[in-house]
Design a protein around this nucleic acid. Structure first.
Length: 617
RNA sequence: GCCUGCAUAGCUCAGUCGGUAGAGCACUUCCUUGGUAAGGAAGAGGUCAUCGGUUCAAAUCCGAUUGCAGGCUCCA
């Protein structure tokens, strides 16, 4: 096959080289397709002002200022114009202009955004790419000829601020995707479809787990089935805390704003806090647990013998997120963190971090969730002593090395109050979600003047570690639903077993076993509706119930049940005790008894391109 | 918050040119007692998100509001 994408001449063999070659190839392809799209848009609307058009993780976009809003119908027209340009198989030609030439050229075309870009370029020589008469300021590189870009599709139109600055004009952004082959394009589009099917908002409705109501935007109504999921996760979390030496507390929800003046949140976070007036005082719904946990610590004089002191709290939090930022369970105004604060000495940090990394690993392994670690170090605007930071960063790095999991370092990306380890889960669309987080905090102990009495009988200041494993329970459930496509392992499943009697004569047999199992903690029901087997099976399958148990005269006779599982389909007639043993063991062991269909996005997505998400504390 | 789009029965969606609303599933009742993804019949269910405007007449056209979606921004 003719390869019109520029390829390096040599033939590197290593996997890493291959990966980087592919990355380079995709980069060129996407960047070039963005140019072709811009050409088509300018053809259609000569008044269009061009901003920027870079390649992104799974495609490209280009930002325009246009005389009118684009519709989906416009996308169709732009696509067909692009097809024409691509068929022309134009060369991408690199030339250059001096700063003045470029200013004159783009000035005459009234391309103000390009002029602004030129002003931002240090080099005196401007790199220019031309294809089929379309000229753009661009560092490149590009493909050789436009034909390489034929497997593309425009995806959506969206608003985007010029230079990402909300005080600057809102431009129109067109997103598209492009792949070297038709197969890859089709696969990508299929994955997008599948992701839509397993969107947690859709599954939440289908499985009757939760809902939202306009009267309380950004806050979930947990339905009975959803609440079971929620409570099972929290139950697991409690067990985990207990074995790891945590104590659990429960603090109030509403505090005098003075608390947040002390913690420093009022300066930075006031706009995100819900407040209410009460007898002349301003009260705040708490947006995080840290400040009030500090109050708990201070309720008595602490000794070094109590450290490390691990204090957990799951209390409802409220954050007044911008209405446009809300999204299902993954971005709520009301949510719950599986939060804990560890009060420790500097010497204890490394062991604590290591234990936390193991806790996160074990928890995510329960669901076969892929995750990545990012170590964020001292930022420019850090507070506290330099030596403290150095010591802490070293402790974090050593812990992370000991944990043996690869990680990336984000230099200077730490919070001003301390370095941190961010843990990102990848969801079904390849999006990264910050769920777990481990953050050191030198500032909070200062602000609250935390102390403990050391072995030397002198007063010392502890360090605080903030940490969450699930992150927010709401977000974690959202991610989990999409990851598992709604089919929960038996231990988590809202309904674990359903009995399907063939006819009324078999109902009593089923009821008896079901009652026995319920007494043993199994969530089991009997479907006594006068419906045919096929119908009952269908409903049980749609509800994704792990254990389906069919009983007729045959089974009653032999004291068995015909087992069908969501995971494996029909498994035939088995003794009641055999099934019970397996079921109880899977629940007790928290077995991951599901088929996980993973999208192979690794081949497509540049995982290094991580949009830094949420610093939740 | 900003840009664009969407809002019709519990759910998924039709609804032509502006002429007072329709399907499937779910629900209720009845019939059917059956063997691994939909048995049959009947019934009930809607202030077409809300408010306002245009019009003889608005689900339909216009405006505002609310919510949702995709983005942007934000995310101690």
């Amino acid at each position: 096959m003719e390869d019109v994408v520029n390829e390096p001449e040599n033939e590197p063999a290593s996997e890493q080289d291959q990966a980087s070659r592919r990355k380079d190839k995709l980069f060129r392809l996407r960047h070039s397709t963005a140019h072709i799209m811009a050409q088509a848009v300018v053809e259609m609307m000569p008044e269009a002002k061009l901003a920027i058009g870079p390649p992104i993780a799974d495609g490209f976009y280009y930002d325009f200022e246009l005389p009118r809003s684009l519709s989906d119908a416009d996308l169709v027209e732009i696509e067909s114009r692009m097809q024409k340009i691509i068929k022309g198989n134009h060369d991408f030609v690199r030339t250059s202009m001096s700063r003045d030439e470029a200013k004159k050229f783009f000035g005459e075309k009234e391309q103000g955004y390009k002029l602004e870009l030129i002003d931002g370029i240090a080099d005196e020589e401007m790199s220019i790419y031309t294809q089929g008469g379309f000229v753009d300021l661009c560092a490149g590189p590009h493909v050789g000829r436009s034909k390489a870009c034929k497997h593309f599709k425009l995806l959506s139109v969206a608003g985007a601020y010029w230079r990402g600055d909300s005080t600057r004009p809102m431009l129109q952004r067109i997103y598209g995707t492009v792949w070297p082959t038709k197969e890859e394009l089709d696969t990508f589009l299929e994955i997008k479809e599948e992701a839509k099917r397993r969107d947690h908002r859709r599954l939440g409705k289908e499985l009757d787990l939760f809902s939202f109501h306009p009267y309380s935007p950004g806050a979930a109504f947990w339905h009975p089935s959803g609440l079971i999921l929620y409570e099972e996760l929290v139950r697991y979390w409690r067990e985990l805390q207990k074995t790891a030496g945590y104590m659990e507390i429960r603090n109030p929800l509403i505090y005098d704003s003075e608390l947040y003046a002390v913690s420093g949140h009022l300066d930075h976070y006031a706009q995100h806090m819900f407040t209410l007036e009460c007898e002349g005082r301003t009260m705040c719904l708490k947006p995080m647990n840290c400040p009030d946990t500090m109050l708990f610590y201070k309720t008595k004089k602490r000794s070094y013998r109590e450290l490390p002191m691990r204090v957990a709290e799951t209390q409802t939090l409220h954050r007044n997120e911008l209405s446009g930022a809300l999204s299902g369970l993954t971005r709520c105004r009301q949510f719950t963190q599986d939060d804990a604060h560890i009060f420790a000495t500097m010497d204890q940090i490394q062991d604590e971090i290591l234990a936390l990394l193991r806790m996160v690993h074990d928890t995510y392994a329960l669901f076969d969730l892929d995750y990545r670690l990012y170590l964020s170090t001292r930022p420019a605007d850090f507070m506290g002593e330099l030596a403290l930071w150095d010591q802490a960063e070293k402790a974090l790095e050593q812990a992370i090395e000991k944990a043996g999991k690869p990680y990336h370092v984000n230099e200077g990306d730490g919070a001003f109050y301390g370095p941190k380890i961010d843990i990102y889960i990848r969801d079904s669309m390849g999006r990264m979600w910050q769920c777990a987080t481990i953050q050191l905090d030198f500032q909070l102990p200062e602000r609250f003047e935390l102390e403990y009495v050391g072995a030397d009988n002198a007063v010392h200041r502890p360090v605080v570690i903030h940490r969450a494993v699930f992150g927010s329970i709401e977000r974690f459930i959202g991610v989990l639903l999409e990851h598992l496509a709604g089919a929960m392992p038996t231990w988590l499943s809202p309904q674990q077993a359903i009995f399907l009697p063939i006819n009324d004569d078999c109902a009593a047999y089923c009821e008896k076993i079901a009652a026995d199992w319920r007494a043993k903690g199994v969530r089991a029901e009997v479907d006594t509706r006068p419906e045919k087997m096929g119908y009952k099976i269908r409903l049980a399958e749609l509800a994704k119930i792990p254990y389906m148990l069919v009983a007729g005269a045959k089974e009653i006779e032999s004291g068995t049940l015909s087992l069908r599982t969501y995971k494996d389909g029909p498994r035939g007639e088995l003794s009641v005790s055999e099934i019970e043993t397996e079921l109880l063991s899977r629940i007790a062991q928290r077995t991951l008894d599901v088929n996980i269909k993973k999208f192979d996005l690794d081949a497509f997505v540049d995982v290094e391109d991580l949009d830094a998400e949420a610093k939740e504390y």
